[in-house]
Structure formats: C-alpha cells, structure tokens
Design a protein around this nucleic acid. Sequence first.
DNA 1: AATTACGACAACCGCCTCTCA
DNA 2: TTGAGAGGCGGTTGTCGTAAT
Length: 265
Amino acid sequence: MGRSPCCDRRSVKRGAWSREEDAILTSFVQRFANAGNWMTLPYKAGLNRCGKSCRLRWLNYLRPALRHGRFTDEEDSLILSLYADIGSKWSAIAAKLPGRTDNDVKNHWNTKLKKRHLLAMVPSTTPPTAAIDSPSASDADESSLPPPLDEAAIATDDGEELTRRSEELYAELMGLIQQQPMTGDVRSSSSSLSSSRTACASSAGGNSAAWPVDDKEFLPESSGSSTVVELDDPCAAHAFGAASFQDLLASSYDEVIGTEGLLYY
DNA sequence: AATTACGACAACCGCCTCTCA
DNA sequence: TTGAGAGGCGGTTGTCGTAAT
C-alpha cells in the first residue's frame, strides 16, 4: 500500500520471454558481467522489461550451469531433510543443491514433495503400503532412473548451444562494432573505460552491485580472456553511444545471422 | 473426439533486508 | 542517523501439456 512499483507495468512487456529476449539478456549479462545494475539493464540492453524480471529470468533460467529437469532421489531426500531442519528457506536449500534455483526447489516442493512430506507426517496408524508410499515409490523409481536421453540431451544442448551461439554472435557483433564509428572514445584506452565505469556507476544511483555472475563457475571461460576484458564494462552499452545493445544486435542482424532469426534454432 | 482434472514450471507480486549517500 | 533505491526472497498465480474420463 502506497509502495511504488519498481517499474511502470503498463510500459514494460510482461509474460513469457521470447527467444530473442533470452539471447539479448544472455549475451548482455555474460559480456558485462563484472558489475552492473539490474534496474538499468533493460535500458542498456534495449529490453522492454522490468529489471527484476530480467534478474529473475537470468537467475532461474538462463544462467549457465543450471540444471533443469527432474530431481534425483538424493536431491529429494536432501530437500526433505533440509525442509525439516530449516523450513521453507528455499534459497538456503537451493544453495545445497548445485545447479538448482530456489524457484526450482520451491516448485518441486509444491508439486511433489509437499505431498510426500504430509504423508510422512501422518501417524503411522495408516499402513505403509506401497500405495501410501507410492508418490515416493513411483517417484523414486522414476527419479532413480537417469533422465530420458533425449530430454537430458535437449536440456544440455540448449544451454550449451545458447552459450555457444551467444559467443559467436558476440564475436561477430564486436567485429562489426570495431568497424563502426564510435560516438565516444570508448575503445581508445582502458583508462577511458575506467572513467566510463566510474561515471556510469555514479549515474546509476551509486548502488553498483555486481551481477550475480561474479561466481566464476557461471562464466564462460572466454569471458575472462584478455580479449574481452576491455569490454567487460557495465557502461559499455551506454558508451556505444545512441545504440543500445539491442540496436547493435539489430543493426548487425542481417550480416551476422541473416533473416531467419536471432540465435534460435 | 471432446472435455475435465491435474501436474509442472515460468513468471509475477510484494515485503524485507541491505547498502550507500 | 536516516531515507531511498536495489537486490533477495517466499508466496502465489498463470499457462501449457498430458492423462483421465
């Protein structure tokens, strides 16, 4: 009550993310990973989305090293155990499950494990038949099996493919940018980048929290390479001048990808 | 074949906490 | 010390696919 929303809901897009949006967000976050601000990201990247929505999309779905798909028996057991200990602290529980997000764990709990938990709370007067245990039994049977090959392959391939294609696009994009006249002296020296970073950080309201991808495991190896260090600047999109990240993507659309679509396959 | 019920999960909402000027 | 802004988190809702009737 009386609390202003973080963004104007009428002017930002809501609902399911398109593949193009995913690609833009992934490329942007991976490239400008060292510092940044979720609230200004949509503007910088040219995404018509709320910053919080971008953050959520990245953390819960696009972030590398995430594991999608069914939970294993061991994961189920761990969740049940941790829930008994600490309750619905989903972020804390998820922290114990590599590759899982709090949203994943929460959803899994609400759809499956809650029932199992409630059944376990039922006094043992009810016979522990296979039927009673069936959610766990059947689930255990299922979850103890490896995921269906195609499903696992799809999940893995999608993630890797997205990263790979993002890398490719970015490389192409950077090539085009190198050829474009810059409105500012962005590339001239690392010192100018430093000043750009400082200026941007202050202009962003001083709250310059790093992207949550400072964890090295989430970054592609190439992102730490010396060839891209100069561009790992959260203000680089601004420093590009009038062109937002998406503008640049769009301008290079035909040259890089052709007219078939951006990154999606 | 059509309809309904249900499971799975992505996304949103709003409150709380933290950081910084 | 305090207020504003941003991030984090848990609860909830919406949507889609599929199984059951």
